[in-house]
């Protein structure tokens, strides 16, 4: 009797957890659909879009660029050491460029932007929610989704590919700088090999990943901020949840895109 009772309790808890999870996914999907609708259907707020392009793209460039620079250099060093064990040190330019463009450029760029932008969006919208500024927008004949969410989601999705493109170039140059100054590579030869090994689908997959990651970054920041409640503590929770969920979704979607694009090759 007690065992059966305990079993029912466990099943009930599992059921609650699963239903709660599905309900959360449903809420995020509906929010995403509404965000896309409000981002692409007029009326637009071009000034808000321009502001977000600068905040997300331009102001993230230093942190994303430095991340790419150091990662590219460290990657070249590791490939050189590992490759030397089986006489494959010459693969440094090829493996570095593929590693940076396919994976590290978009993923690390996405994670850095998530840390910077998702948290800022969640904090700003969360504060607007708890100080009733979002309700105020409604009373001022302005749709909060169109004014706050649409421009952020659109800007992040558009600007992330540009950011990752620049970051990829910086990452490759980081590897190039280390390889030519410390590992004895010839500068011209290194660049020739880098270009020769880089294919169009490497670049396309990198940019597609970047656009998806940008969408995720803005979506999580906006979703958690918009639904923030409970004062300052609630804003703090929203900020943490935005960053954590953006990180997980970026890594998960990276795997999915990688398997879809490169899984059959």
């Amino acid at each position: 009797m007690t065992v059966a009772h305990d079993l029912v309790g466990v099943l009930r808890a599992i059921g609650r957890f699963v239903l709660g999870g599905l309900a959360s996914i449903g809420r995020v999907v509906l929010f995403a659909a509404k965000a896309i609708g409000h981002a692409v259907v007029p009326p637009y707020y071009p000034a808000r879009l321009a502001e977000q392009l600068i905040v997300i793209g331009w102001f993230s460039l230093p942190v994303v660029g430095l991340t790419a620079l150091f990662t590219g250099a460290a990657l070249a060093q590791q490939i050189f050491i590992g490759g030397s064990r089986f006489n494959a040190a010459a693969t440094v330019p090829a493996v570095t460029v593929i590693g940076i463009v396919r994976e590290l450029g978009p993923v690390l760029g996405g994670l850095m932007v998530a840390g910077r932008v998702s948290s800022a969006m969640a904090a700003e919208l969360g504060t607007m929610r708890v100080t009733e500024q979002i309700d105020a927008l409604t009373t001022l004949r302005t749709d909060p989704f169109r004014y706050l969410i649409g421009p952020r989601v659109l800007a992040a999705t558009l600007v992330m590919p540009l950011l990752v493109l620049v970051s990829n170039v910086i990452g490759v140059l980081g590897g190039y700088a280390l390889a030519t100054t410390r590992l004895g590579f010839n500068a011209g030869n290194y660049l020739d090999r880098t270009i020769a090994f880089l294919h169009t689908d490497d670049v396309v997959s990198s940019l597609v990943k970047a656009a998806v990651f940008g969408f995720i970054v803005a979506l999580m920041g906006c979703y958690h901020g918009f639904h923030s409640n409970g004062g300052a503590a609630g804003v703090g929770r929203a900020t943490t949840n935005a960053v954590v969920s953006a990180f997980i979704l970026i890594l998960m979607s990276n795997l999915v895109i990688t398997v879809i694009v490169f899984g059959g090759k």
């Binding site: 100080t131 009733e132 500024q133 309700d135 105020a136 409604t138 009373t139 004949r141 749709d143």
Partner: peptide
């Protein structure tokens, strides 16, 4: 939206846009 356009509202904390 047309319904809400009939109203103006003074919020407790002002709710001014920072």
């Amino acid at each position: 939206a047309a319904h809400q356009a009939k109203f103006g509202m003074l919020f407790q904390g002002g709710a001014l846009f920072d």
